[in-house]
Amino acid sequence: MLKLLDRVIGWISLAAAVLAIAGLACVFVSVTWEVIARSVFGHATIWSNEFSIYGVIAIAFLGAGYVLRLNGHLEVDLITSRLSPRLRNGLGAATDLVAAVFCAMVLWSGISFVELSQILGAVSVGELRIPLWIPQSIIPVSFCVLMLEFLARSLVRLGLVHREAAPVAADPVLPV
């Protein structure tokens, strides 16, 4: 039962990750097209800048749940790696639950943000004048996924769910 739950959460975060990949493709296409349009056709597009920023927001947040499943978020393991496995898992489950609570707060705040944005009638500053609540919805959706992933990871650490080998990316490029 719990195992099925963990799987379903995994599928959800994978779906969100695919959207984040679409965001990355969107960033690449918008930025590159803008340069080409300007240098070859001599005029700028009205959508490039806006779309690239929405793409970045999708990458930053929609991918976060999946990255957690890969254990890919940066963590300081200086102390925890020296603890006994029992203690380490206990502490890990506790921090996961705290993190889930934080995500729940962001989720709540994100929903009211999207509502407020509709009340304000906020639209993008660019020429597209996109109603901002649409890209802003990425925040509550992503933090809902991330919250679920933290809960699932705490189950794993408590030994309630056993995952087969985690889907580790081949050998990812590290950030800095």
Binding site: I59, V67, L70, G72, H73, A169
Partner: peptide, 14 residues
């Protein structure tokens, strides 16, 4: 794209 997304996400989320 998947690996670039996860790496970028790690940075941008932080």
């Amino acid at each position: 794209f998947m690996d670039s997304m996860t790496t970028s996400c790690m940075i941008l989320f932080l």
